[in-house]
């Protein structure tokens, strides 16, 4: 509303009249920055095909968001960069040998079905990248479980990796061995730095921890979810190891060889699908940890991070409601 005074229109709005310069776009940009070192490492370990898949995933996520909003005559939201983050995270949860058209299908599922059909940013109830990853995992089980040996570079541009090339795949991550109660050959050091088979973005545990800390310093995320998530997994795998593997090395491999670090720092902390209270975040983190270990121990799959986070996504509203802080000056609960 404006009013005319001395040839001048004054803005009439309710207080407050100033706002923080930090917007959704800045936050998403910080997440993108934090995800870049892991990409550099992925290119080093798996070759430029890692970059190709990431680029395809990002471009198609942004494109689907743009097209959907345009088609539905809604405001254009691609500038908030959330679709870029989804694209990167989706690519990071795929093996490098994935056929190049798979990330496009995943992007469609993530952006259109999980995010936009619910109303766009902030309205989805589960994490788009994770949901898409699980969808692809169910739809293309062979492609999504073929893991390449580090250092064996695949063609960056071949749509489908040739049969000959897939022969060089390792077939299993250390998690498969761990599931059978066996300590795999991979030593702790190469697991920590990420010189192991795995998805594009999950292998570099050290880099993911450091960039996760960067996000905490930048106040993009709080410590509650990653710390409680990782601590829960650490505690259970240390106290109750599977089979007779036992010991600290079993725990360390559990922590560093799967998607735990990527999930704990970058996926479980997704604002939209995690609680807004500190206590809620702690319970959520512990829940993610418990479900992850249960799936890894007793489930049908060697990896449980994606499912654990998706399941906990569904509890966000209840956790927020149950951990609602006592109002200042309000009656005790």
């Amino acid at each position: 509303m404006n009013s005319n005074t001395e040839n001048k229109f004054l803005t009439m709005t309710a207080s407050p009249h100033i706002k923080s310069p930090i917007k959704t776009r800045n936050i998403m940009a910080d997440v993108v920055i934090a995800l870049m070192p892991a990409l550099v490492w992925a290119i080093y370990v798996f070759g430029f095909r890692a970059l190709t898949i990431t680029a395809i995933s990002v471009v198609s996520c942004v494109a689907f968001e743009y097209l959907y909003r345009k088609l539905m005559k809604k405001s254009n939201t691609i500038s908030d960069l959330s679709a870029v983050v989804t694209g990167i995270l989706l690519a990071y949860s795929l093996p490098v040998s994935t056929p190049l058209w798979i990330p496009i299908i995943g992007s469609f599922f993530a952006i259109v079905i999980v995010k936009q059909l619910y109303g766009g940013i902030g309205k989805n109830i589960i994490n788009p990248a994770l949901a898409a990853r699980v969808f692809l995992f169910v739809a293309y089980p062979t492609e999504l479980t073929a893991f390449t040996e580090p250092g064996k570079y695949l063609s960056p541009f071949a749509v489908n990796v040739s049969k000959a090339a897939s022969d060089i795949t390792a077939g299993a991550t250390p998690l498969v061995d761990l599931k059978n109660g066996i300590i795999p050959d991979a030593d702790i050091t190469s697991t920590l730095i990420g010189n192991i088979p795995g998805t594009i973005g999950e292998v570099s545990a050290t880099i993911l921890i450091l960039t996760g800390i960067y996000l905490m310093i930048r106040k993009v995320i709080t410590w509650h979810i990653p710390v409680t998530y990782i601590a829960t997994v650490a505690l259970i795998t240390l106290v109750l190891p599977l089979g007779n593997a036992g010991g600290v090395s079993f725990m360390l491999l559990q922590l560093f060889s799967g998607g735990l670090m990527l999930g704990a720092f970058f996926m479980a902390t997704d604002y939209v699908t995690s609680p807004a209270t500190s206590v809620g975040r702690i319970i959520y983190g512990v829940g993610c940890g418990l479900i992850t270990v249960f799936i890894r121990y007793f489930g049908g799959y060697p990896e449980g991070v994606s499912f654990a986070i998706l399941i906990m996504n569904l509890f966000v509203w209840y956790l927020d409601k149950a951990t609602k802080p006592k109002a200042f000056g309000g009656a005790k609960k």
């Binding site: 959704t24 908030d80 959330s82 966000v316 802080p325 109002a327």
Partner: peptide
């Protein structure tokens, strides 16, 4: 001035700053 209403991303920042401890 910036009054274009956007979307809540459920980041919880408002919960953290509320001096009355509301959501």
């Amino acid at each position: 001035q910036s009054n274009d209403e956007g979307d809540c991303i459920h980041c919880g920042r408002c919960v953290g700053v509320c001096p009355m401890h509301l959501m």
